[in-house]
């Protein structure tokens, strides 16, 4: 129970910091780094949940863009290898998980069939 409490506390702190980052970033920082955002306000509320969830990433990108040392070439390097490995990981994980869980199941394929320990006659004589 205690660790659950700590976890939730940490989650709350994370969300509050995210909210603060969202206010500053969407109200002020965004106009300085993204020309397309200029003067368009309608889409900003949509970004709030995203900022709250990934604010460390937002802060990192924000400072890269603010210092203008963004590497344009990088924009065209789709993570093909990572994607391939992730896909392969899934190919392995799914059958392992399913087979493992079936083996684990208490009345799964390895479980001996149920037998009746007392016959009906015994049961009645015991009464």
């Amino acid at each position: 129970m205690e660790s659950a409490q700590t976890l939730l506390m940490a989650g709350q702190v994370y969300v509050w910091i995210g909210l603060a980052v969202a206010v500053v970033f969407l109200g002020w920082g965004l106009d300085r780094i993204d020309a397309k955002g200029h003067g368009s306000w309608m889409f900003r509320p949509l970004l709030v949940p995203g900022v709250i969830l990934i604010w460390p990433l937002v802060l990192w990108r924000w400072q890269v863009l603010a210092r203008e040392n963004d590497n344009l070439q990088n924009r065209h390097r789709p993570p093909l290898t990572t994607q391939r490995l992730m896909g392969l990981g899934l190919v392995l994980a799914i059958p392992v998980l399913i087979a493992g869980a079936l083996l684990l199941r208490q009345d799964g394929p390895l479980e001996r069939p149920a037998v009746m320990l007392e016959t009906a006659a015994e049961t009645s004589s015991n009464e």
Binding site: I33, L57, R61, R75, H76, P78, P79, Q83
Partner: peptide
């Protein structure tokens, strides 16, 4: 904002 590779 994140760039396509980071987003991806």
């Amino acid at each position: 904002f994140l760039t396509p590779p980071v987003w991806k």
